[in-house]
Simulated scan of single mutants.
Amino acid sequence: MLTFDRLTKRFKGNTAVDAVSLTFPKPAMIGIIGASGAGKSTLLRMVNRLSDATEGHVLFEGQDVTALRGGARRAWQGQCAMIFQQFNLVPRMDVVSNVLHGTLNRRSTLATMFNLYPREDIHRAIDILDRLGIAAQAPKRAEALSGGQQQRVAIARALMQDPKIILADEPIASLDPMNAQIVMDALRRIHDEDGRMVIANLHTLDTARRYCDRVIGMREGRVVFDGTPAQLTTGVARDIYGADAGFSEAATSTSIEALDDAGAMLRPAQAAI
């Protein structure tokens, strides 16, 4: 279904993604992990065609995505929706209008200029917001919502595109543990209920293990791990992150319980200061 064939990206002599070859034969929930600068975001941007590959190919259902230009490229970006860490909403615009922006790739220039939407699209946008538990926020400005609510609006906007693939670039990096779980639950549910492929860049191991069917580990632009969540041991994680024996998963966990445990370990030391 989706194949990366020696996908490579160089920036002024520096290799950000180095000959990555992966095949995803069917829709799945896939997590990509690795330290900052490992090439995770650059990889997703090449898949979505926000960035062009230096070498290699992205193939989807037999089509060479890296060769698409003009309208064909925009059509692909409609099938391959992108969710960003910083939400990328229009802050002073109401929530439902932000969601309706997911239809821009199939609307006329005139309709876009005058903010005209078919009634059925408006109803569908509200239905998607309801599915994500935030329909009551539809008339509010996006800037009035919490970070977790804004990320769900961004997910709703992606669903308005009716994509085959959803790419999520660090979707919970700026969220507290409770909202992180709500957002990841939503992405997992979208995969399970809709059969869409979801590929998410993640920065915590517990999240990858809990939500993903397959985990890809990247280090210095290369894939150094490709396996199941059960195979993602602490030792494997040390190799992915280039860490020593002092590496602690709890320090980067999004689990409320793990964070509580970490806090309990810190408190006695703090009390002695």
Rank of each mutant, 00 (worst) to 15 (best):
G37M: 10
F87H: 12
S108E: 04
E61D: 14
T103V: 10
R106T: 11
L159M: 15
R124G: 00
M113I: 14
A53Y: 08
R69S: 07
R157Y: 10
F84A: 03
A28R: 13
L44H: 06
G148A: 12
I122P: 00
S36F: 09
G147M: 03
T66A: 00
T66W: 01
A53Q: 04
H57C: 02
M46F: 07
L159D: 09
A154F: 08
G39E: 11
A53M: 07
D162T: 08
N48V: 11
R73M: 14
P27E: 14
G102N: 06
P139A: 05
A28K: 10
L129S: 06
L68V: 05
V58G: 01
I33G: 05
D130Q: 14
G78K: 11
V96M: 10
D94S: 14
D162H: 12
A156V: 12
R73C: 13
A144Y: 10
Q77F: 04
G78V: 01
D162K: 12
V20L: 14
G133Q: 09
P91C: 07
G148M: 13
D94A: 04
L132T: 09
N98C: 12
I122G: 03
V90L: 15
R106Y: 00
G56E: 02
R141V: 00
T54W: 08
V17Y: 13
Q150S: 03
R124Q: 14
